[in-house]
Computed example of a mutant assay.
Amino acid sequence: MMVNETKTPLLSVKGLKQYFKVSSNYTVHAVEGVSFDIYPGETYGLVGESGSGKSTIGRSIIRLYDPTDGTILFNGMDISKKMSRTDTQALRTQMQMIFQDPMASLNPRKKVGDIIGEGLDIHHMYHTHEEREQKIKSILAKVGLAPEHASRYPHQFSGGQRQRVGIARALIMNPKLIIADECISALDVSIQAQVVNLMKDIQQETGTAYLFIAHDLSMVKYISDRIGVLHLGHLLETGTTEEIFENPVHPYTRSLLSAIPAPNPIVEKKRIALSYDYKTSGIDYNKGTDHLVSGSHYVKCTDEEFDKWRNQEC
Rank of each mutant, 00 (worst) to 15 (best):
I172W: 01
P265C: 02
R169N: 01
I139R: 15
S23C: 10
V195W: 05
Y285I: 10
Y39S: 14
Y39V: 08
D201T: 12
L171A: 10
P9C: 10
Y276H: 12
A146V: 08
D114F: 00
P251V: 03
S84H: 02
L256H: 14
C314A: 11
Y285G: 09
S158T: 00
L73W: 15
V195L: 06
T71F: 04
C183F: 04
G15P: 04
V28W: 04
P9I: 09
A170P: 04
I98D: 13
M103S: 15
S23F: 12
D87E: 11
Q18R: 07
L64S: 04
I191Q: 05
Y298W: 14
R152Q: 12
E305W: 11
S275G: 14
A150S: 14
A262L: 11
S52N: 01
V13G: 10
A214Y: 14
S52R: 07
T206R: 02
K21W: 01
I98H: 15
K135T: 05
S52C: 11
V22G: 02
G58M: 04
S151Q: 14
I260E: 11
D225N: 15
I283N: 13
N174E: 13
Q203S: 08
P102T: 15
G228Y: 08
F99G: 09
A30W: 00
I202D: 10
H215D: 04
I122C: 02
Q94P: 03
D66C: 09
N197I: 11
G159H: 06
I167V: 13
V34A: 05
P175F: 01
I136K: 13
S185C: 10
M95W: 04
L140R: 10
L145W: 06
A104T: 14
E131C: 15
H124P: 00
R254V: 09
K14Y: 08
L10G: 10
F157M: 05
L140G: 11
Q204D: 05
I179Y: 08
S55L: 06
S52V: 02
C301R: 00
G239V: 02
L235S: 13
G228D: 04
Q96H: 10
K21E: 13
H129K: 15
V28T: 12
I191V: 12
L292E: 07
S12T: 13
V3K: 06
G288C: 10
A170R: 00
E205T: 07
F212N: 09
L187E: 04
M83P: 00
E42F: 08
V31Y: 09
N25G: 10
G117D: 01
R109V: 10
E304V: 10
R109Y: 14
L217V: 11
L235N: 12
